[in-house]
Amino acid sequence: MFRLCFWTLRIWAAVRRRLAHRLATRLHRASLAKVGLRSRFQTGIRFDCPDRVSIGADCIFWRGVGVAAEGDDAALQIGDRVQINRDVLLDMTGGLTLGDDVLVSEQAVIYTHDHGLDPHAAAMQLPKTIERDVWIGMRAVVLASCRVIGSGAVIGAGAIVTRDVPAGAIVVGNPAKIVGYRKLVEVAA
């Protein structure tokens, strides 16, 4: 009897989760400026300025993702096949562009503005571009002073990125330093 109750509850919870994710996806499709085919959203995702968010096809947003903006002229452009994992914070105040096939791991933070040394000063908007095939590790922080992360770069878990990252570079540490380069292999389309 216990097994029957256990599995009945597990199945009911799974069905409820799937229905909630479908509802969340429909709500985000209706509120965001553009959402590509087969992009999916879990529950608990928040977008500031949803009319300035454009998302490509086959993207996945896990629960707890926050997309924040200070001001009304912010914009977020996301390419195809991008995965944003749990509890990630994307700041789109200065403008943020994520290329195709980007993976942002859990609890990473990406900033596009800075207040300098005065927390009450107006935000200095600094646009950021994260090129294609970039992997940002768990709990990495990309500060506003980093304007470009090159194609194929890897940001190690817990890294604090303060400068631009060249294409194919592997960076780790606080502050992040280059420790190597990926061997980038072009995949025939």
Rank of each mutant, 00 (worst) to 15 (best):
T129D: 09
H113E: 06
G71K: 13
V142W: 01
D87V: 03
G99S: 03
G150I: 08
L98T: 07
G94I: 02
I160P: 03
R86I: 04
V148M: 10
T93C: 03
A159K: 07
Q125K: 15
A74G: 15
V104F: 01
I149P: 04
M124E: 11
L96W: 06
A74D: 09
R132C: 14
Q107W: 06
D133Y: 12
I110M: 14
V104K: 00
D73R: 14
I110R: 05
G94L: 09
I160E: 05
V148A: 03
S105Y: 06
A74M: 11
V65D: 13
G156F: 00
T129Q: 12
G66T: 13
L96F: 08
R81Q: 15
A69H: 03
L143H: 02
D114L: 06
G94H: 01
I78C: 06
R81C: 15
L143N: 02
A122T: 12
W62T: 08
C146E: 08
S105N: 10
L103S: 03
G79I: 04
A75T: 13
G71A: 13
M138N: 05
L96G: 04
P119G: 07
G156Q: 02
V134N: 00
S145I: 04
A69C: 15
L76C: 08
G158W: 04
I78Q: 14
Q83M: 13
V148S: 05
K128Q: 14
Y111C: 13
V148D: 03
I149A: 01
P127C: 09
S151T: 10
G94W: 04
Q83F: 09
G64M: 11
K128S: 01
A69L: 14
A144P: 00
I160Y: 02
D91M: 11
P127K: 01
M124Q: 12
A153S: 05
V65W: 11
V134A: 03
L126V: 15
D91S: 09
V134L: 07
A144K: 01
E131Q: 13
E70Y: 11
D133M: 07
D114I: 08
